[in-house]
Amino acid sequence: MTDAVPTELLADRLRRAGEAAAEQGTDVLFVTPGTDLRYLTGFTGASHERLTCLVVPAAGHRAPPALVVPALEAPGFADVPLEALGIELVTWTDGDDPHLLVSDLSGGPTSMAVDDDMPARHVLGLRDSFPEVPQSLAGPVLRTLRMRKDPAEIARLRAAGAAIDRVHARMGEWLQPGRTEAQVGADITAAIVAEGHAEAAFVIVGSGPNGASPHHDVSDRVIEPGDVVVIDIGGPLPDGYNSDCTRTYAVGGEPPAEVKETYAVLQEAQERAVAAVRPGVSAASVDRAARGPISEAGHGARFIHRTGHGIGLDVHEEPYIVDGNELVLEPGMAFSVEPGIYTPGSWGARIEDIVVVTTDGVERLNHNPRDLVVL
Rank of each mutant, 00 (worst) to 15 (best):
D12N: 05
G18W: 06
A20R: 09
E23A: 14
G25A: 08
L29W: 05
P33L: 04
Y39Q: 01
L40R: 04
L40S: 06
L40Y: 03
A66Q: 01
V68N: 05
G76C: 03
P81N: 05
L82K: 03
G86Q: 01
T93G: 04
P98W: 07
V102R: 02
S106R: 09
T110P: 04
S111T: 12
D115A: 10
D117M: 08
P134D: 06
V141I: 13
L142A: 00
R143N: 10
L145N: 11
M147C: 12
D150K: 00
P151M: 15
A152F: 06
A152S: 11
I154D: 00
L157V: 04
G161K: 13
R166S: 15
V167N: 10
A169I: 04
P177M: 02
T180I: 06
E181I: 08
A186C: 02
A186D: 13
T189D: 03
A191T: 15
V193A: 10
S219I: 09
S219E: 05
I231Y: 07
D232K: 14
L237K: 10
C245G: 08
G252R: 08
T262K: 14
E271P: 01
A276P: 07
A283M: 10
A283R: 06
A284F: 04
D287Q: 03
R291N: 00
F303H: 15
H305K: 09
G310K: 06
L313C: 08
L313G: 06
L329H: 14
P331N: 15
G332A: 12
P344E: 01
A349I: 00
V362D: 12
N366D: 05
N368E: 15
R370P: 00
